[in-house]
Structures are given as C-alpha cells and as structure tokens.
Design a protein around this nucleic acid. Structure first.
Lengths: 158, 158
DNA sequence: ATCGGTGCAAATTATTTGCAGGAGC
DNA sequence: GCTCCTGCAAATAATTTGCACCGAT
C-alpha cells in the first residue's frame, strides 16, 4: 500500500473549475453564478461532502441557490469528470473531487468516529487484474471499502 | 482467487429457516405464515433478490402479504444473520442468504448484462490485513465490487 | 431576443410507520 | 386473552422534474 502523501503545492495550469467551465461552453451550456459558486465551494470544501452539507455551505456564500440547483450542478460536475459520487453507508450520496492522485482511490470508514480515510494500494490494483483474468472479464472500475476501527479510536485518542 | 465451487449437497442439520424460527422464539416473537413464506421464498429464490422481486415471488405463493411485511421480515432475517443486505448500483437494496462459504464474499457486476458474479479471494483477505496494519486500524468487514464486462458479454455470447 | 437556467413546489422512488383489526401462544 | 403481527395507507427521506419567470450569450 502506498502512503497518502500530499503532492506539491504548485498551482496546476488547468484547475478543475476551468475544466468545468470549458466543458459547459463546449456543449452550449451557460456559466452562471450559481454553478460557479457551487463548483467553487465543492472544490474547496471537505472531501466526501453530502448534498445537504454542500447546500448549506453554498447558501452562506450565495443565498440565491435552491436545493434542485445543487443537485443539477452536481450531476454536471459528475458528467464532466470533476466530481465522483460515493455511497458509503448506503445512505445519502457523498461527492468527492476527482483526481485521486493526491488521495487514495479506496476508503476505510471508521465505524466509531465515522471518519473516512483514503488510501491507495498498488498491490490491490494488480490483484484486480489477476481476478479479472480468472473471471475472463474486463474491469472498468472497483469499489473497495473497508470498515472497522481507526487507529485514533483504538488508542483512545478520540 | 479461489474458484466458487459448490459444496456437497448433504442437507445441513440446521437450516437457515430453523435458525430464523428459533431466533424468533428466543425473543418471544411469533412464527406466522407470512414470515415463513417470505423466509422460504427468500432462501430458495435467486441470490441478490430485490425487495420488489421478493414481494412478487411471495405473492404467488401467498397473496395475503403486504409490501410492509416483506420489509419487516427482511429486517428480521438480517438481524438474525440469515440475510445480508447489499447495495450494488446504489439503487434499491438487494438481499442475499448468508453463508458465503458456497459463494464468494465479493462481487463482480457486469455493466452490460447486469449479472452479478460472486468470487472469493484469499489473496484479498491477506491484503486487507496488510492494509489494516499500515493504517493501524482493525477491519471488521469489507465491501469489494468490481464493475466491468463479463466473459459471456465480451465473447458476444449474450 | 433566444434558449438555457433557476427556484419553488409537486412528483417519484425506496422504505418506514401509525393504526385498527386479526392471529399466535 | 394478551400481545404481537399484518395490511393498508399515510409519512419520510433522498432525489428529480414541471413550469413560469429570469438571465447569459
């Protein structure tokens, strides 16, 4: 398993927000203050944010947004590849910014403190391929979630 | 990955239905024809059945059942460990009979034909533990789903 | 000026719950 | 007979959609 190290802090030439705006423009869709605000708050806020949390956070910046627009914009962000939808405890959806390079693609969910820890595992990537070969299948994506008690909770630090 | 082989066909001494009935009795709950029918149909029907499918199948056997009772009985089956709830495509819940020995505990979902293939992987079990150690966590359960195209679909046999 | 976008409220979907009557023990 | 159970319909919860007006290009 590779540790989750932060990448360099150099600003990338193309931000996810740019990607989103360009994607909209390419298909004749419009840039609106709501879409901008929702995307900006989404990208700078917590990873694994729920719709409710995002809605509340956006309201603080721009009270002129409705729940429906948050849902509609999240769908666009998903479609253009900027956001990824997750369903951890089979409850409401949570969204994370794409670009798992800085983070892992898999998740550990602590059943005590509910924290979500991301990790990456090259061994797992390889194992996927071996399983695919055995099944005669081609794999396009995986979802791995480990549930348990995290280090902090185990050590009583929480 | 271990292949998914069928176990011997010898009838076990205690069936899941017995387990369910005993569990109900132990806590002063009642055995009713609805509960029996729902449990029986659930246990003999398709693995990964949805509530809707189960409801329809039970109706054929006993039209005197309501949707609510199917939900309520599934909850009981879950609580007594006979059924396990899954959420594959983040849509409606699907239930499978517990006792994954005969089947795998992990799932491959074909994105073309929607078939669900179970498999088990000892390598994966070991990898879980290595990941847990790295994270300093203790793992109680995992959810692994691989999505892609299955062999039959790839070979155009479907 | 033209479409697409937005808020709101109503519609949907999956699931749960209140209640009055019915069936186990 | 006392409870627990059931069906039905109404209530939730999460998400989507119809519609009249608004705003970006």
């Amino acid at each position: 398993m590779t540790p989750v190290v932060s990448a360099s802090s150099a600003r990338p030439l193309t931000t996810p927000l740019d990607t989103f705006r360009r994607w909209l423009h390419e298909r004749g869709l419009k840039t609106t203050s709501q879409r901008d605000d929702i995307a900006r708050v989404f990208l700078t806020g917590n990873r694994h944010i729920s719709v409710e949390e995002l809605y509340a956070a956006v309201k603080k910046v721009n009270p002129r947004v409705g729940y429906a627009t948050v849902y509609r914009t999240l769908r666009l962000l998903k479609e253009c590849g900027v956001a990824v939808e997750r369903h951890f405890n089979d409850g409401e959806a949570r969204y994370e910014a794409a670009g798992g390079e800085k983070h892992g693609h898999d998740h550990f969910i602590c059943e005590r403190c509910a924290r979500i820890i991301e990790f990456a595992s090259a061994e797992l990537d390889a194992l996927d391929q071996r399983i695919a070969r055995k099944l005669g299948a081609v794999i396009s994506r995986r979802r791995l979630e480990l549930y348990g008690i995290c280090r902090e909770c185990r050590e009583g630090k929480r």
